[in-house]
Amino acid sequence: MTAAPAPARVRLKPEERRAQLIGIGLRLLTTRPIHEMSIDEVAAEAGISRGLLFHYFPTKRDYYVAVVRAGGHRLLLHATAPEEGAPADRVRGIVDGFVSFVRRRRDNYVAVVRAAAGGDELVLEVFEENRRILTDRVLLAAGIHAPTPLHRLAVRGWLAMAEETAVSSTAEVIGEDDLVDLLVRSLEQIVEQFAAGRP
């Protein structure tokens, strides 16, 4: 009895191959620091040669940055405000998407944050860009259209708290809806302090 022939390798369009390689990287990132990720392992899992991987990403660093950027982009797709509504409702949309994303993808999120903390300038730049976008979204949703540097600092600090509570809390400690309520109220208090001239 002869063995069945091996399945033919599927040819992917360049954008599909890039997406496949980045997806593999995001999954592997949950098991090791990004700079310990093996390019050979990524290529083998994708069923391509190491050389072909470098056709899509010229260097390992380019690949690592693309993986971190993709992780940040996925978060930003979820953490969005509705087009209309009161400031509290618009902020709630961002917070709800953020908390939901982080809690359901905790390992991936922590891995991306850890990668940014690794000190690579390009990776850190991607991470900081995501933080700037989130800060701008929150300020706009909260109705702060001409933020001062102190406004930005306050929202950055609030985002750090939101991130830590979303990562560290469990359903036994606080439910997702209650956590969203807590974070929205805390931001409202910060905004009220600035409106009252008490930064």
Rank of each mutant, 00 (worst) to 15 (best):
F194I: 12
G175E: 05
L53N: 01
R50P: 00
H55E: 05
I34Q: 14
A116Y: 00
R104L: 13
K13L: 14
Y64K: 12
G143K: 10
S49K: 08
I22M: 06
V10W: 02
P199G: 11
G97Q: 07
L21C: 03
F54L: 06
R92F: 08
Y64G: 05
A162P: 00
V180I: 14
T59E: 03
M37Q: 09
A19D: 06
G47T: 02
A86K: 11
H35S: 09
R137C: 03
A44N: 11
A162I: 00
V102P: 05
Y109I: 00
P147W: 13
P33N: 08
A66G: 05
A6T: 08
L150I: 05
A43N: 00
V91R: 01
V112I: 13
D96S: 15
P14M: 15
E172Q: 07
L26G: 00
A141K: 00
G51W: 00
I39M: 15
V42M: 01
V112E: 08
E41M: 07
R106W: 03
R32Y: 04
A66R: 06
R106M: 07
L150C: 04
R132Y: 11
M161F: 15
V155A: 04
I39T: 10
E129R: 15
R137Y: 03
N108Y: 14
G93S: 12
R132Q: 11
L183F: 03
D96L: 15
L75E: 04
F127M: 09
R74Q: 14
V173T: 07
M37I: 11
R32F: 03
A111L: 11
P147K: 13
A195L: 12
V138W: 06
E163V: 05
H73R: 11
D136M: 04
Y109T: 01
V184L: 01
A162E: 02
N108E: 10
D120G: 02
R9W: 00
V110Y: 08
P82D: 09
E172F: 02
V180F: 06
R103M: 12
A46N: 05
P199E: 10
K60Q: 13
R50C: 06
H55P: 02
R137H: 08
T165A: 13
T170E: 08
F54H: 11
A19V: 01
G118I: 01
